[in-house]
């Protein structure tokens, strides 16, 4: 079982790779819309990758209002 910190680290790795942002520039409390420069459609493509990576189903309404990696990690952790 992953710890929450491990989950968030993996999210940061995936986000950095998908949107070609240096991993070192990302941290848990970042607003991922701003830091990755993405819109809601691109956030959905990140959600798709996260669901596949963690093998979870995360309804997008659970992410309404979520914009930082830490909270995103908490929502995923709750489904692991």
């Amino acid at each position: 079982m992953r710890t929450q910190e491990q989950t968030i680290d993996e999210i940061l790795d995936l986000a950095a790779a998908q949107f070609k942002v240096p991993r070192a520039e990302l941290s848990a409390n970042d607003d991922f819309f701003k830091k990755l420069g993405i819109d809601s459609m691109q956030a959905l493509s990140l959600l798709t990758r996260l669901e596949q990576h963690f093998n979870v189903e995360l309804p997008d309404y659970e992410l309404q209002g979520v914009s930082d990696f830490k909270t995103l990690g908490e929502r995923i952790q709750a489904r692991l």
């Binding site: 959905l44 959600l47 798709t48 669901e51 596949q52 189903e57 309804p59 997008d60 309404y61």
Partner: peptide, 10 residues
Amino acid sequence: LTGRSFNVTK
């Protein structure tokens, strides 16, 4: 009824 999105697995 939820308006949520499904990934390809689902």
